[in-house]
Lab assay of single mutants.
Amino acid sequence: MDEEYDVIVLGTGLTECILSGIMSVNGKKVLHMDRNPYYGGESSSITPLEELYKRFQLLEGPPESMGRGRDWNVDLIPKFLMANGQLVKMLLYTEVTRYLDFKVVEGSFVYKGGKIYKVPSTETEALASNLMGMFEKRRFRKFLVFVANFDENDPKTFEGVDPQTTSMRDVYRKFDLGQDVIDFTGHALALYRTDDYLDQPCLETVNRIKLYSESLARYGKSPYLYPLYGLGELPQGFARLSAIYGGTYMLNKPVDDIIMENGKVVGVKSEGEVARCKQLICDPSYIPDRVRKAGQVIRIICILSHPIKNTNDANSCQIIIPQNQVNRKSDIYVCMISYAHNVAAQGKYIAIASTTVETTDPEKEVEPALELLEPIDQKFVAISDLYEPIDDGCESQVFCSCSYDATTHFETTCNDIKDIYKRMAGTAFDFENMKRKQNDVFGEAEQ
Rank of each mutant, 00 (worst) to 15 (best):
E4Q: 12
V9L: 09
V9I: 01
T12V: 06
S20I: 01
G21A: 07
S24K: 13
V25R: 07
V25F: 14
V25I: 08
N26F: 14
N26K: 05
K28W: 14
K28M: 12
D34I: 13
P37L: 09
G41S: 09
Y53R: 14
F56C: 03
L58K: 08
L58G: 04
E64D: 08
M66R: 03
G69A: 13
N73F: 10
D75S: 14
P78T: 00
A83P: 03
Q86H: 07
L91E: 03
T94A: 07
R98S: 04
S108F: 02
V110F: 03
Y111K: 14
K112S: 13
G113R: 12
G114Y: 13
R141H: 06
K142N: 08
K142W: 01
F143G: 02
L144Q: 10
V145E: 15
N149S: 09
D151C: 06
E152Q: 14
G160F: 01
V161A: 07
D162E: 02
M168D: 06
V171I: 09
Y172H: 05
R173S: 14
D176E: 10
A190V: 06
L191N: 15
T194Y: 15
T194P: 05
C202Y: 09
E204K: 11
V206T: 06
V206L: 10
Y212H: 10
E214K: 09
E214D: 05
S215Y: 00
G220I: 15
Y229N: 08
L231E: 08
G232N: 15
G237D: 02
L241S: 06
Y245R: 15
Y245D: 00
G246R: 06
G247C: 07
P254H: 02
V255K: 15
D256I: 14
D256N: 07
I258A: 15
E261G: 08
N262S: 11
K264E: 08
K264Q: 13
S270T: 10
E271H: 10
E271D: 10
E271M: 03
L280Q: 04
D283L: 03
D289W: 13
R290Q: 15
R290F: 06
R292Y: 07
V297I: 07
R299W: 00
I300S: 05
S305I: 05
I308K: 12
K309R: 10
K309A: 13
N312G: 15
N312P: 03
N312F: 07
N327Y: 03
A340T: 13
H341Y: 10
V343A: 09
A344K: 14
K348T: 11
K348S: 13
Y349C: 07
A351N: 15
I352M: 11
A353D: 00
V357F: 14
K364Y: 15
E365Q: 06
E367D: 04
A369K: 03
E371W: 07
E371A: 12
L372M: 00
L373H: 09
Q378H: 06
F380I: 12
Y387L: 15
I390N: 04
C394F: 12
C394N: 13
S403P: 09
H409Y: 03
H409I: 10
F410W: 00
I417V: 10
K418F: 13
T427I: 09
A428T: 11
F431R: 14
M434K: 06
K437L: 12
D440Y: 04
D440L: 08
V441T: 11
F442M: 15
G443P: 08
A445D: 04
A445S: 11
Q447E: 06
